[in-house]
Design a protein around this nucleic acid. Sequence first.
RNA 1: GCGCCAGUAGCUCAGUAGGAUAGAGCAUUAGCCUUCUAAGCUGAGGGUCAGGGGUUCGAAUCCCUUCUGGCGUGCCA
Length: 550
Amino acid sequence: MIRQYIYEQVVAALDKLGYSHEREITVEVPNYTEFGDFSTNAAMILSKENKTAPKVMAEKLVQELKKQKNFKKVEIAGPGFVNFVVAPSQYYELLWQIHKEELEFGKSDFGKEEKVMLEFVSANPTGPLNIVSARAAAFGDTLCRVMKWVGFDPIKEFYINDAGNQVDILAESVELRLREIHGEKMEEFPYEAYHGEYVKHLAQKLNSQEGVRIFMMPEKERMEHLKDYALNEIHLMQQNSLEKFGVVFDSWVSEKTLRMEGVVEEVLSYLAEADCTYEKEDAIWFCSTKFGDDKDRVLMKSDGSITYFVPDLAYHLTKLQRGFTKLIDVFGPDHHGYVPRLKAAFKALKYDDTMLEIIFLQQVNLFVSEERIKMSKRAGNIVTMDDLLNVVSKDAARYFFIARKANAHLNFDLDLAVKKNNENPVYYCQYAYARICSILKKAKKDKVLPKTWHKEHISKLTKPEELALIKKMTELPDLLTGIAEQREPYRLTVFVEELAGMFHRYYSKIQIVNEKHKELSEARLLLINSIKDVLAISFELMGISAPEKM
RNA sequence: GCGCCAGUAGCUCAGUAGGAUAGAGCAUUAGCCUUCUAAGCUGAGGGUCAGGGGUUCGAAUCCCUUCUGGCGUGCCA
């Protein structure tokens, strides 16, 4: 908010003084308060192109900018920085603005209603969601919330890979467990089959519903039946886990349905028309190397079946047909080899491949009492999203998952997440909110909470901590557009921790309600009420609760 | 081998327009509740920003290179 203003003032001053400004200059918050509220490097960046010494330029800028009433101080420092101290009156204006916007603060039309497709989780429908899916869910959902807040038009979609041989294996696994229930002995459960307990549960449930009738069906029909049953059950299971986690998808797209609509054939013909396919060793290949991939890819295997890639590409094309101009895929760490071929296909079919953007989430390492838990799908000892949520609150889990950059490994310390004390950053932040609520409640009870707020009393806020808190809150709009643009939700947790910390320190240092100073008390109550709103907005965007009592 | 990602305090991590003296939490350690919630606050110690070159007024940040770790490199999905 203020930064943009200062930037404009600097540019105006440069123009007035006849300096050129080809190179980008910056206005930023210095690391040290003695350098003021904001600082610009304009003189140093532009000295070369204007053939003027930085200090001389800086001095002229200072003279020019000093004329502004909104600055309390403008001074030259170091090798040519121009530092600004913003007049308190400016902060009072801003606080009043934040106060009036309440829970709408930070909203903007930055995204210009751009239609964005966020695809994430998209786990195989062959088992419960695991921890990486949980990370993806928290990440994608938070990003979507922020993008919506700043004016994009995003939707969340889950792509169900309910076709292909993994699903066949699932059906076979259920059948084996069914046979087991009926007393059939088998030497050993096959290595490739799904070993998880949930398969047994599926079999039991099906058995209690349909019993031996299943085995009367012809083999082929039975397998189809088992497949449909298992897929549906698992889909509901996954959907349920996600909902418990606060993640509700706008749309679910089934690969099987897509295939039935004939998109596979369509894509194959498109690629053939573009002259990008050839036959070799009884298979059909896509010459993706012509478009930047490091090897060509098989589209149709020698047994006549299709590879995963084809329907997936078709799926991506349907996103474009549905009018989305930005396709964001959130992938797990083991898929990055897959990107060049998708991009290659976009190029081959003359689509703009920059519309396709892929974000990689790195793996999640789960730690329990400082031991890393090793998970193996085969052994069936995967820690599922439900397991996690049975132990850790939704708030803590979501917070931990978004608190790291996407492309960094995430160490999830289960002991820490479970803790409800000062070590756990979620509670640190929520506690600030609860404290404010408590103060406001008490103020209301003591009849010191004003029925209508008076703007003129804000000027009673003169403590550096108070101005710093206002300044911090004004960062929110820029922060949110930055998060949306860079796809980096984790920055929200950094912001919230900073704001909560500033509040905690302020609280322990300064008495907010003081009956002897009514107007000052009112101003401080207004201040913390706005902090409360800003925290509430942040929590809402992270999908965690804002507890009024803790 | 090749490709992608990462390497900042004992641990987990910030440091997003290349800025001034490198920041926080935990852990260690010394304190603060008869006063709006101690799930809080205050102080102390702790660093060759993996190593080495370069770019420039200025580099944890950009370029090159070496080392270390993770992942990928299927006619699996």
